[in-house]
Write a protein that binds this DNA or RNA. Structure first.
Lengths: 339, 339
DNA sequence: CTGAAAGCGCTTACAG
DNA sequence: CTGAAAGCGCTTACAG
């Protein structure tokens, strides 16, 4: 069943059928109705491959998780962003292609090759921990790209990210306004770009507010898990020098730290107040519930779709946007939720 | 840059280049090396659309979340399954297409039309709450489909699901072996197929073990959220008739119930033991950590990929597989973790 | 308003 | 081992 069959059945040319499919206006209504009827009756569906081959437009957006392959769906932030993005880009008429084929060429990370192969109209690139160089090949190609948490520099690229400076400064401000003066930080031993920004901004904010910056109050979790956070806090407790309030660079690490504190008989928030970062679901179910900083994923995902759409349709210049984060106050930081 | 350019540069025909690209063996090594070199130097990449048009094979698998559109990525089970599936199907040489385009035709749920449009080689269909009829159009088409938690009946379809009977019977058995005799259940008011199976199997298991089936110990959460579980348990407590041990059909509902119990001064597991279902991440961080039944998502996801692959390559007859669930013992059910 | 024909970039018998 | 040519199902100037 193809366009030719339909044309024959309707007694018109394929060109005319094509015009009807694509909503051209220079077709008589009579012809149009006749053809439409036949298309409906036969259940005819055009073929994307033929259309893409002829037009070089696929209406497909490639999804790239920059960093180790297949970590993507385990990453709550990724999942939330992609969910909003999918909805919004879908509204604009695009489908999503996830590159999973590991038989593609010799190395599995040749994103530009994959993107060209499928003639995607654009890509969304979400940063993981270690960004491989092939991502930048894509970035600097002619294919429009929108980066999340990664600074793309290509001519047809833009990026969106949370304002990490604000994330940290909001935490420091909150603690400061509520009388806390001795603030600590748990970071990650080998930090990603984002983690590094949060840490530096935290230290900078302490200075801004005239608060002490004690190196012994900056500790580092080996990795991003709850257990790593637990171990880090544990050795802190052993040393005996604890701050009054603590900012953990990710929620999971904060969970681990809270477990360690509780085990040692420390009360949260009375003995030590804790704020995490990311607002993962589980924050609501810990005891006490974890206060945290929430990235505005709705806004990030929607902006990503909008900007990419404009990029794909050459409507705007490349530009980058920083999105304001938001405090989520729960039991762990010693403030009323209405704050 | 196309196959013709490469052929001209190498001084061979396009047919020969095509054979080299597709690893045909009847090409002299000399010619092969020459062409390979040129392809490498020029960075030539074939085009999926042309190839798909010529072969009717796309190496694409369509992903369908049966139920309300766009719920998918918010669904932890879906995300975990798709993650494993993606890895495995990628190893077999396929990429994943997520249907998100909401401009497609008039109604957004015409999965068969979308699948035909993109010439996908097969589809994975994951069941949500309310399965729309268009899913069955896809199921009964010639396109191979693998269902997760949904009984597909098409000639080219198979399905994989957890053995829901076993889920409930394992819980009942566990409680029974540990001396609990009065068991309760929290279900969902308007249950999905899966939820209904769990409830019926629970009641059946009680009978098998000769335990009392008290209607007042079967209560129903309005929906799937933590808050709904809280409300359901709350009204249970008010009525004053509580079982010694409780099985909640989903973890989130179990969370809510635990919150209600704790608020009323009931101790978990001493006053009431609780087991949830699904093993979502947050189970590990509640107080006490929630015992639960874990579906073997690794196995389900991998099986789905394998069976679909065989289906797409006509290597097997349609068949369905039930996967054994697994108990995860944590603090909430009053048993040592080593159980 | 309608249609003939070239072209998009591949694959595949088939002939040699 | 190699190549000429038809075909996959669309779109798009262009002519009428």
């Amino acid at each position: 069943m193809n366009i030719k069959t339909i044309a024959n059945m309707a007694g018109v040319s394929v060109a005319t059928v094509s015009k009807i499919i694509n909503n051209y206006t220079d077709v008589s209504n009579e012809t149009k109705q006749k053809v439409l009827k036949i298309m409906h009756e036969t259940g005819y569906r055009p073929s994307s491959s033929a259309k893409t081959l002829a037009t070089k437009k696929s209406n497909l957006v490639g999804v790239v998780f920059a960093g180790k392959l297949n970590v993507d769906f385990n990453h709550p932030f990724f999942v939330d962003i992609i969910n909003v993005f999918k909805k919004q880009i879908g509204l604009l008429g695009y489908d999503l292609l996830f590159f999973s084929n590991e038989k593609f060429l010799d190395n599995g990370e040749d994103y530009l090759a994959r993107s060209k192969y499928f003639s995607v109209d654009g890509c969304i690139i979400i940063a993981g921990d270690e960004v491989e160089s092939s991502v930048y090949d894509l970035d600097s190609s002619s294919i429009p790209c929108i980066g999340i948490d990664i600074e793309l520099t290509g001519e047809n690229s833009s990026y969106i990210m949370s304002d990490n400076d604000k994330i940290s400064s909001k935490v420091v401000e909150l603690f400061y306004l509520n009388g806390y003066r001795n603030l600590g930080f748990i970071g990650i031993e080998r930090p990603s770009l984002v983690m590094k920004e949060r840490e530096e901004a935290f230290a900078a904010s302490l200075k801004t507010f005239g608060l002490p910056v004690h190196p012994e109050w900056f500790i580092y979790s080996k990795d991003y898990t709850e257990e790593d956070g637990y171990q880090a806090a544990k050795s802190w407790i052993t040393k005996g020098v604890l701050p009054e309030a603590l900012f953990a660079a990710t929620d999971l690490v904060a969970f681990g730290a809270m477990r360690a504190f509780k085990e040692s008989g420390l009360r949260i928030p009375q003995d030590i107040a804790v704020i995490g970062c990311d607002d993962i679901d589980a924050c609501r179910y810990t005891d006490p519930p974890l206060s945290t900083i929430k990235q505005d994923k709705q806004k990030i995902g929607r902006l990503a779709a909008m900007v990419l759409f404009d990029l794909m349709n050459k409507q705007i210049e490349a530009s980058s946007i920083k999105v304001e984060p938001e405090l989520v106050i729960r039991g762990s930081c010693g403030l009323p939720e209405q704050y």
